[in-house]
Design a binder for these strands. Sequence first.
DNA 1: ACTTTATATATTATCGATAATGTATAAACA
DNA 2: TGTTTATACATTATCGATAATATATAAAGT
Lengths: 219, 219
Amino acid sequence: MPKLVKSYTLSDQVCDLLKDSIIRGDLKPGDRLLELDIAKNYNVSQAPVREALSRLKNEGFVIHYPHKGTFVSNFSKKNIEEVYSFREAVEPLAIKRAISNITDDDLEKLKSIYEDMLQAGKENDLEMLNKHDIAFHTYIYKLADHEFMFNVWENLSSASNRIWYLTNQIYFKNLNEVAKLHEPILNALYKRDAEECIAAFKAHMKFVWDKIRDEEKIK
Amino acid sequence: MPKLVKSYTLSDQVCDLLKDSIIRGDLKPGDRLLELDIAKNYNVSQAPVREALSRLKNEGFVIHYPHKGTFVSNFSKKNIEEVYSFREAVEPLAIKRAISNITDDDLEKLKSIYEDMLQAGKENDLEMLNKHDIAFHTYIYKLADHEFMFNVWENLSSASNRIWYLTNQIYFKNLNEVAKLHEPILNALYKRDAEECIAAFKAHMKFVWDKIRDEEKIK
DNA sequence: ACTTTATATATTATCGATAATGTATAAACA
DNA sequence: TGTTTATACATTATCGATAATATATAAAGT
C-alpha cells in the first residue's frame, strides 16, 4: 500500500526546519529564537512559528521562558548520560513485550534493517547508519504495543539524533563496530530470549556511552 | 523563602481548566473540543485555547487530527496497564539515583509527606491522599537529578491523576492500605538500600494494579 | 441505483495588528 | 555615589478576521 499523503502544515514545516538546524548545529545552544524574525525568514506569520516552538520545547530542543523568549537548549555530557541511562531502564521493557509479540515476518524485517546498517557501515555513510539504527530500535518499540512508551521513545530518538550529530567524529572511526553491535540483539530476538537480548542491548548502550564519556571534545 | 508569584498566562489557565474537566470526567472520552466554543466559554480568543490544547495533546489527554479536530482521548485498562508497567521500568532508576543523592534532610521531608498521607488516609480524604502520594514520588524523581526522566514523570503523574479519578471507587475501600504501602519504601530509603526500596516500590505498584485489573467496572 | 461533481457549511490554520509584559536606559532623588 | 522612579523599546501573548481544509448534502451524469 502506498503511503498516504501527509498534509504538511506550515507549523510542521517550520518545526522540522528548526529542528534540523539545531541538530546540525547551525543553531547553537543559547541562541535566541525570535518568533517574528523566524516568521519573516520563512515567510509565514507568528502563529505557526509559535506552534513549532511549542513542539520543539516539548522535545527538549529549546527552552521557553514566558514573556522572555525561547532559546536553543544546551546538550551537555550530562544530557547524553541521561539519554543512555534512561534507555537502559526503558528499552528492556520494550524488548520483553516485543518478544512476546514478534512474528517470523518481523524477524525478517529486522534482519533486513540490520543488513542495511551493515551496508551503511561498509560505505562509511554516517547519516544512513544513523537512520537505520533508529529504524531498528523503533521497530522493537512498535512491536512492544505500548503507546505511552512509544511516545517517550519518539522524544528519545530525537535526542539520540542530536547526540549522533554531536558525536559523529567519534562514531566515524567505528561505523562497522556500531552496526555489528546489533547482531547479538538480532540473534537473541530470533531465539526469543528476552534476557539475552536485554544483555546484548545493554552492551550496545555501554559501548557507545563509554566512547562518548571519554571524549574530551564533548562537555 | 516565599514562593515566587507565577505569571499565569491565559493558555495556562485554559489548559488547567480543561485538564481538570477531563480528569474529573466532566469531559468524556470522544467528546469534541471546539476551539472557538471553548474560547467563547472562557471568554478568551482562539490562540490561547489552541496552545492549551497543544499541551493537553502532549500529555495524552486529547487527540488531535489536523484540520479535523481535537477529541478527549480514551483511557482504558490498557492505558492504565501501560502506566504501571512503565513506572515499574523507570522508577527503579529514579530510586537508585535518588539514594545516591539523598540527605538526612530529604528523609525528614519524605517522612513528613508520608505522615500527611497517613493523616489523609485516616480522614478518608481521597483528594489529599492522591496529592501527597504524587508529592512523595515527585520528591524521589527530583532527587534523582535526571532532567529527561523528570519530564517523563510529569506526564506520568498527570496520567496517574486521571487513573486515580477513574478508580476512586476502588481506592476508597483501601485508603489506609494505600498510604501504608509507602512505609517500606520510606524505610528502605532510610537504610539507603536501593534494592529493598525498588522491591517495596514494585509491591506498591502490584498492589494497586491488581486491584484495578480485577475491577469489572473499568474497561 | 450508483458514482461523480458541485455547493454549502463547519472548523481549523494562518494572518496582521494590538495589548501585555519584561528589559534596558535615563532622569530624579537621597 | 547609589538607589529608586520614569521612559522608551523589544518581544511575547492575545485578539479579531480571513484563508485553507475537511465534511455533509444536493445535483448531475451514467
